[in-house]
């Protein structure tokens, strides 16, 4: 893949502070995600968590990241969310550096990354999705509260709005995190294992929300072990193994009708 002129170097890019100010608009014609030769190494690790990874997610696309545990799926998502600094390579979100796109990117961590025993209600947690627009010394307005209520209704958890987050089931927790991404009104969703240990109804809700999101011009990158709905729900899949991209499988347009048929993908659940 040729390097695009002006693509920001991830390890040198400016880091914009928290708040709605200073964020940049998308550059015309640029993909939602463009990653070139990205390498990431954790401080005490002996080898790269990601090595020379290149991939692209076009605007309006839904792409799956698949691969065995330790393949680098979560690291890639965290790098795109600005949580991990790469050693080398370039990353651009809508043509801008990662730090310029806080408001445009919603990162959904694995549910285990949150402290669910914290004294917050579902609506409190979902409201944190608005913080990127509020910044310092601003508090949620009535309009923000209406946004939260509407999103909770859309995801079928309006009746849980005042429930403590520690009392939620796995599926309800996942819907709550998805609700937070929706109230953030981000264009790019980065989801880490959103279908892990959730009920079938939640899977349907997640699928429907992501479909609508891409139909409205949003883009989605999902790390998943769940291959069940891969070909019907995603535009393509990136297969990672030991920090490297082994293959990129386009569904519908490529020679592969089903990821399950691909030898690389068969290793995804190993």
């Amino acid at each position: 893949m040729n390097q695009s002129p002006g693509l920001p170097h991830s390890h040198e890019e400016p880091w914009l502070p928290y708040s709605g100010r200073g964020h940049r608009d998308p550059q015309a014609g640029q993909p939602a995600v463009q990653v070139e030769h990205l390498s990431v190494r954790y401080r005490k690790a002996g080898s790269d968590a990601l090595h020379a990874v290149s991939l692209e997610v076009a605007v309006g696309q839904r792409v799956a990241l698949v691969g065995p545990n330790g393949a680098g799926k979560s690291t890639l998502l965290k790098t795109l969310a600005g949580l991990v600094k790469p050693q080398s390579g370039q990353v651009a979100l809508y043509g801008n550096p990662v730090g310029a796109c806080h408001h445009r990117t919603a990162y959904l961590p694995q549910r285990t990354d949150l402290d669910w025993q914290s004294p917050l209600t579902v609506s409190d947690l979902v409201m944190t999705g608005r913080y990127v627009h509020l910044g310092w010394l601003s508090w949620p307005s009535q309009a923000d509260r209406v946004r939260v209520r509407r999103v909770l209704e859309r995801l079928g958890i309006a009746d849980l709005a005042e429930r403590q987050i520690g009392d939620l089931s796995g599926g309800q927790q996942q819907r709550t995190l998805l609700a937070r991404a929706l109230v953030q009104e981000a264009s790019l969703f980065l989801l880490d294992e959103p279908l892990n240990a959730v009920d079938e109804a939640t899977r349907d809700v997640v699928d429907e929300v992501l479909t609508q999101h891409t139909q409205n011009g949003g883009s989605v990158l999902v790390a998943t072990h769940d291959l069940g709905r891969l070909t019907e729900s995603f535009d393509s899949a990136v297969y990672l193994r030991e920090g490297r991209v082994e293959s990129i499988l386009p569904f519908g347009s490529g020679p592969l009708a089903s990821l399950a048929a691909h030898p690389a993908a068969r290793g995804a659940n190993e």
């Binding site: 880091w15 914009l16 502070p17 928290y18 708040s19 965290k78 969310a81 600005g82 949580l83 730090g99 806080h102 408001h103 990117t105 990162y107 961590p109 990354d113 949150l114 402290d115 914290s118 917050l120 947690l125 944190t128 913080y131 990127v132 509020l134 310092w136 508090w139 937070r180």
Partner: peptide, 17 residues
């Protein structure tokens, strides 16, 4: 609100700068 967010979900806090 910032203290609360970085207490409950520091990753989300970091992802929004």
């Amino acid at each position: 609100k910032e203290l609360m967010l970085t207490t409950v979900d520091p990753l989300h806090g970091q992802s929004i700068g």
